[in-house]
Amino acid sequence: MAITFTDKWIEAQKPTGTRQEIADAATKGLYLFIYPSGVKSWVYRYRTSEGLRKMVLGTYPKDSIKKARADAGNAKDLRTGEQPKDPIAERKERARLTAEAEREKRRLEQVEAAKEQRLFQPMVERYLKEHAKARRSYVEKARLLGLFGDDSDWEIRPGSPVAKWGKCSIDRPALEWREDVRSFGKKQVAAGTGYLANRTFAELRGMFNWMHRNDILIPSPLLNMDVPFKGGETERERTLLNETERGTFGDELRWLWLASDTEPVFGPWIKILILTGMRQAKEVAAMTWEQIDQSDPEKPFWLIPDTAAKNGKPHRVALSVEAMEVLEGRGDRQGAQRVCLHHDRRHTDHSGRQAQEADRRLDAHYRREGTRRAG
């Protein structure tokens, strides 16, 4: 017997030991199946040349009476339309097409992700991680290519290769790479930084050669290219002057020390460089209070970890009274913070605007001090 379904009536129905099949009086072919487990399902029943078929539409109460009747009506329309179709076969075809569309979407996302990884900046980061990180020149390699700071959150140095080509595909035509790299080097030479141009070119060539060796990009587009600056590099002959040798100029190291007093950010850094003889990039710039041992107040020392030491081994540096005074005067007692350098990481980029301005101020004060002492 058919029943006109209502929520109150359906909720009152209890399961029995067998499956109950109850027809809806309002919609031909719609049934409510009540299983011994208590589950209540909507089913659309219809006949084909192959016999009686049952199409599950959903469950109650998740799917309402109104929705079940609408779904049953749609199934009937498919069977009785101008081009009759089997509702079950049609649903399977829609599911198949949806699955294919999802697979194609995932495939395209993977293609885009692969393209993203073949852009210049992600490839630079991969080169630094897989090839350069274990090398002593890691920080310098990153700087030449255009990255500085924390390798988990790199910052881009303006005017660098990464700033210029970061979003370019490494798969672009070799001639385009050669023309761009050649033009980049010429601009560096024209700006008076020929040595920097050669070192930047050497790092770019090294990275492309690494890609060639690892079958990432074959061949290297920079193969057989000449360095941009033909002047070559000469060994430094400049030494500090001492008034015993050049009486008219005085003690330059003393002038630099006095000039450093005028720089609250970079001054302490310069003094620690003078007092310890350590390197500025990976050692002094990364010094923390956790690395300073004052267990013996008379003999404090700085233990440089292997990750910052040039030779990759922990290194112990004695700290003089003067060095401790500089650190105490500028230091940040938070263990994870640098003690001799401004906390803004951009200040560790030696080609940054702040460093260049400080360099000009130091040079001017240094020259004034030298002129005054010489006079």
Rank of each mutant, 00 (worst) to 15 (best):
L217S: 06
L108H: 14
H131T: 04
K186L: 08
K28M: 12
E21V: 08
L241W: 13
V284F: 03
I216D: 02
K14L: 04
A309I: 05
Y31L: 10
A68I: 00
K54V: 01
D296C: 05
K62F: 08
K310M: 11
R103W: 08
R94A: 08
Y127M: 05
K187G: 12
L119I: 05
R172E: 08
T239I: 12
W289S: 10
E203W: 02
E125N: 09
E82H: 09
M278S: 13
A95K: 11
S320P: 06
E112H: 12
W269Q: 14
G335D: 04
T16P: 01
P84R: 05
A191P: 01
D306I: 09
A281K: 12
F201V: 00
R47G: 10
A113S: 10
R316V: 06
S220R: 00
N74F: 08
G250D: 04
Y366E: 09
A99F: 02
K115A: 15
P228F: 01
G277A: 07
K282W: 04
E112V: 07
K54I: 06
L108K: 15
G231T: 06
R47C: 10
M123I: 06
K105M: 06
K282V: 01
G81K: 04
E104W: 07
V181P: 01
L108P: 05
R367E: 14
G250R: 03
N74K: 13
A99L: 07
L175G: 11
R143F: 07
I292A: 07
K164A: 11
P264E: 09
F201C: 03
A197F: 06
M123F: 03
K133W: 08
S351I: 07
D332F: 09
D344R: 15
D171G: 08
R353Q: 13
L30N: 07
P268Q: 06
G267A: 01
A358I: 06
I292W: 03
P264H: 08
L196P: 02
W269N: 12
T276Y: 00
G81E: 05
M324F: 10
Q354A: 15
D24A: 04
E90M: 15
W302A: 02
G277F: 08
R118V: 10
I65A: 00
W9P: 08
D293R: 02
A70T: 11
Q280G: 15
E116V: 15
E245C: 03
F120I: 00
H347N: 14
A285S: 15
E325H: 14
D293T: 03
I22W: 05
S137I: 14
A95Q: 09
A75I: 01
R157L: 10
L253T: 10
H343S: 14
K67V: 13
G51F: 02
Q13G: 02
G192K: 01
K299N: 10
G81W: 03
T80K: 15
D180E: 14
S220F: 00
R333P: 12
W210T: 01
E322S: 11
V317D: 01
E130Y: 08
G38A: 12
T276D: 04
R45Y: 07
M324S: 12
Q121W: 01
L240W: 13
P122V: 04
L223K: 15
P15D: 02
E90Y: 14
E203S: 09
P300V: 00
S351L: 07
M123P: 00
K167D: 12
G194Q: 06
M55D: 12
L273T: 11
T234A: 15
R345H: 11
D150G: 09
F249D: 13
V339S: 03
D151H: 13
A202P: 00
R316Q: 13
Q337P: 04
